[in-house]
Amino acid sequence: MNRINKKLKENKKLLSIYFTAGYPNLNDTVSIIQDLEKNGVDMIEIGLPFSDPLADGPTIQKSSTQALKNGMTTKVLFDQLKDIRKTVEIPLIIMGYFNPMLQYGVEDFCKKCQEIGIDGLIIPDLPVDVYHDDYKATFEKYGLINVFLITPQTSDERIRFIDSVSNGFIYMVSTASVTGSQSGFGEEQTDYFKRISDMNLKNPQIIGFGISDNKTFSQATKYAKGAIIGSAFIKHLNNNGKSTINKFVHSILN
């Protein structure tokens, strides 16, 4: 069974952390992953940096620009990760935009992910329809779970379709926004969280965008299986460096 599916079966709320590979320094990737696992994070999204990250706010944009300047490429990332499964057991997901994958070759990319032990992919600009028609078979051949986003504007009908195409979890974007652009959840969000929770989808949901601390983590996981933190963690790395990852994770999990 895929590590993501196994993790989703655990009887606990999951904390997933996103970071941009190659940031702050090119060769931080492996040690950040190891540190996050050691401190109790359940799942990691490794950001493959892109020059034009349309769905990201300033924090992740800046980290991506820096990572690219540091020399991060798809090949470098795969190289850094080649022995990752000797030391790390939690599910690892690569999150990136579609163009770098297309240039690497989608099939080669998926094959490499399987060799390394990557469990899934999140590709914000690969729409579910295109995935379903053109790439699903390839992803499945290499045992990869593809994760789709839904937003407060996604229609019920489309959510049902996305649920039917998904085989891991659904990434629930908390608000209509790019990453990192809000603080705290209001009634509008909790209504949306409830609405989705009541749909009884076959895939569990994990909420992302706007989760930054213990409070927002608890609010989100009241309705969903887990929550994803991205920009807040990048900011922490930026302000405090890597040596205090433990403090960051513990401040979320309390």
Binding site: F50, S51, D52, L54, L68, T73, T74, K75, Y97, F98, N99, P100, M101, L102, Q103, Y104, D125
Partner: peptide, 22 residues
């Protein structure tokens, strides 16, 4: 340019071998 994705469409675009838009 080479075939790739920019601003929501598949088209010819100037990019690195790694797929970063130049």
């Amino acid at each position: 340019g080479k075939e790739g994705i920019i601003h929501g469409c598949k088209t010819l675009l100037m990019q690195t071998n790694d797929g970063q838009i130049t």
